[in-house]
């Protein structure tokens, strides 16, 4: 790696300090999933949206009857629920029939494993202040509604009459990630499931046609898994966040 001029390092350092000071000055508390209330939002807004989401959650709690593992309401932003993978299709059915979620938005998955390749986007100068991370020690962190396994299925459906979007999540078992297809309930799930299979290596039972949708048939690997390497990036690192080059005449 080429040597970085001191003045650039100083500039980056100053910027980092400023950013950190700013972040400390304004501590944000919404990151933890437990806290639903937002200090900034006005009182009225919270009341209005919570009514929508909470009414929807009440319906789901009643219909799913103990199968609801966890839930989260983000005011103005929708409703997250988590069910067991055995209840995946049932939850979608409940959402469609009892919550009037006729609009199928999308379906996908998340790989919660931290990337074993670390933060490839940073160059050495960006790491100066930080301890080198040991990626093997890093633990999985799940988002809203938590999780237990590496892969999580997500499906978003929307109710036009209630104006509420429901994000349904389900953990997939690590050894054999498979789920029931949603096609009997939402025919639009067909291509989304093909995409999820190809990108994450999941299996959808009762899906009529699980071929690759994007990649050529002989493609190896599942690109959106965190352990799939981007080979070009392994060979040539990204120039970095502070990618400033010396201008002619900028000799210092």
């Amino acid at each position: 790696m080429a040597e970085i001029p001191d003045h650039l390092l100083k500039r980056a350092q100053a910027a980092r300090e400023k950013a950190e000071a700013q972040q400390q000055a304004e501590p944000e508390d919404s990151a933890s999933p437990e806290k639903n209330d937002e200090a900034e939002a006005t009182e009225e807004e919270i009341v209005v949206t919570d009514e929508h989401a909470e009414a929807a959650l009440t319906v789901l709690e009643r219909e799913l009857d103990g199968k609801l593992l966890n839930s989260h309401i983000a005011p103005m932003r929708g409703l997250w629920i988590r069910v067991a993978i055995e209840d995946w299709r049932f939850a979608a059915k409940v959402a469609k029939e009892d919550l009037d979620c006729k609009f199928f938005d999308w379906l996908s998955a998340i790989d919660w494993m931290p990337s074993p390749y670390g933060r490839e986007h940073e160059t050495e100068q960006d790491k100066l202040n930080e301890e080198p991370e040991d990626n093997d020690q890093k633990e999985m962190e799940w988002g809203y509604t938590g999780g237990e396994t590496r892969f999580q299925l997500i499906c978003r459906v929307y109710s036009i009459s209630r104006k509420i979007g429901v994000m349904i999540k389900a953990d997939l078992p690590d050894n054999d990630p498979r789920a029931l297809s949603l096609i009997p309930i939402y025919p639009g799930a067909n291509w989304h499931e093909r995409e999820a299979r190809e990108m994450f290596g999941l299996t959808f039972d009762e899906h009529p046609d699980l071929r690759n949708i994007y990649l050529p048939g002989d493609f190896e690997g599942h690109p959106l898994r965190k352990d799939y390497p981007l080979l070009s990036r392994r060979m040539k690192p990204w120039p970095g966040i502070v990618d400033m080059e010396l201008l002619p005449g900028d000799d210092q």
Partner: peptide, 13 residues
């Protein structure tokens, strides 16, 4: 040369 997709897994560079 691949442009913005220089590191993509599916683009011919």
């Amino acid at each position: 040369c691949g442009g913005p997709y220089w590191d993509s897994y599916s683009v011919t560079k």
